Computed example of a mutant assay.
Amino acid sequence: MPEANFNRAEVTLANWRSVPYSRWSFEHVSEIVPSAVIPGTRGRESTGPIGLDALSGISFAGLKGIPSSLPDFLAESETDEFVVMKDGRVIADWRAPHSDPSCPHIIFSVSKSLTGLLGGILADKGLLSFNSPISRYVPGVAGSAYADATVQQLFDMEISVDFVESYLDTSGGFERYRRSTGWNPEKPGDPAPDMKTFICGIGKGAGSHGERHAYRSPNTDLAGIVLERAAGARFASLLSDHLWKAVGAEADGMVTVDRIGTARAAGGISAMARDLALVGDLLRRRGAGIMSEDFIADLWSRKRREAWKNGDQLELFPEGSYRNYWYETGAGELAAIGIHGQWIWIHPESETVIVKLSSQRLPVDPALDHAIVRMMRAICGS
């Protein structure tokens, strides 16, 4: 890995998500935020890089609609790792010069999608009921927005909460939430509580639960706590035992934890791109015996289409829907998406799974997201 153009001491809790530091910190999150290990199999022999030769003919409209080649677009979109799998076999991969092949990369809200799958597995085993009230597992939500909501509404992001998802917030509720997770430095004059206490203090918003899709990260952090209480084990261990090892993930993953050890299920997982491709291929193969086919089919069922149409993420997938923390695009694809350019893309018809891990300077860039979707669809159509 080439040396970074800054000293390690310059990377702090205050700047680790900012350019240029993010190109290093996104692969070294455990050095910045306390983290728990998600053990992998550690038994599968790694293969060397393949390159992009299998996709040499791909062309699509990149940024600003200008035709782009795949290598140029990967560099332009600040990609760190990129993997394409067809019919369960890696056919192409790419890694930026600064990227460290030995380090897991933070996947931000793709973590939500892994949490959703873990919920499905635990439900299949009879350890979790999606139809139950959240309070059955976390009584501490009494008096909060979550007091009268179900686990399914939590996993579908259909909770009415008085909370704004604002990634660039520096002084409001979202910044205080990030301090509660351990992601931002504390303010001595205005200390934040631990993450669970913060979430259990969020009030209810306008309207009823289940009416509209409202993407709010504290929902999934609470979901991680629900899973721990339902199964009687820590989140990192549950994810390792029920999903990570089951798909044959080679490398250990990581998940950030707050000051009392609560896992950041909404965005704190770090993983290797090839191992994430195995997770995507699990969905392509309709569960492959690890999860029930019914749960996987439900992700495509579009049951929550009306709530999606009433929600706050309609622009990217106007004909889509959202179920158990996965995006259904409306065109036969599933996607897991995280800020700063993290993606898992699954297209069963072409037997394709794509993983893109990045250090994009903006948390959310709608124009770039649309270009990335065009790239994914061009690959699936090749």
Rank of each mutant, 00 (worst) to 15 (best):
L239T: 03
V279A: 02
E293I: 00
A297S: 15
R274D: 09
L238R: 03
W300N: 04
L362I: 00
I290G: 04
L282Y: 03
S237Y: 08
M254K: 12
E351H: 14
E315Y: 11
E351S: 15
A335S: 12
S321L: 06
R274H: 14
P318F: 10
V255I: 13
I344T: 08
T262W: 05
P318E: 09
G287F: 02
I269H: 06
W300H: 14
S240T: 09
V247M: 04
R323K: 13
V353F: 06
A273S: 11
K245P: 05
E328I: 02
V247C: 04
T256S: 15
T256F: 05
A246C: 10
T256M: 04
I346D: 05
E306A: 13
R304L: 04
G267N: 01
R302D: 09
I346S: 01
W300M: 12
W244I: 06
G320A: 03
L276C: 09
R234L: 12
F317M: 02
G311K: 01
A271M: 13
K356E: 09
M291G: 13
L276F: 10
W244E: 10
R304T: 14
S321V: 03
I344P: 02
W343Q: 04
L238S: 01
Q342D: 07
E328M: 03
T256W: 04
V364A: 09
G261D: 12
R286K: 14
D275R: 07
V279G: 02
S358D: 05
L299A: 04
R274L: 08
K309S: 12
V353T: 12
E328H: 09
A331S: 09
L238E: 03
L243C: 08
S237D: 15
Y327S: 05
L334T: 04
G261K: 11
Q313T: 10
E250D: 12
G261E: 09
R323I: 00
R285F: 06
Y322S: 05
L362T: 03
I346P: 01
S359M: 03
V353E: 08
R264I: 05
L238V: 02
V257M: 08
T256C: 10
A335Q: 14
S358W: 06
A307R: 06
Q360R: 15
S359I: 01
G320E: 02
A236S: 11
R284M: 09
Q342N: 07
W345S: 12
F235N: 08
F235K: 03
G267T: 02
I260P: 01
T262R: 14
L282F: 10
L316N: 03
R323E: 05
L314R: 14
D252A: 10
D275Q: 04
F235G: 05
V279E: 05
E351W: 00
H340S: 07
M254D: 08
I290K: 12
R274C: 07
I354L: 10
K309L: 13
E319V: 00
E319Y: 06
A273M: 05
S301Y: 08
G248W: 10
G248V: 11
F295A: 14
A335W: 13
T262C: 11
S270N: 11
D312E: 07
T329L: 13
S237A: 14
D281N: 15
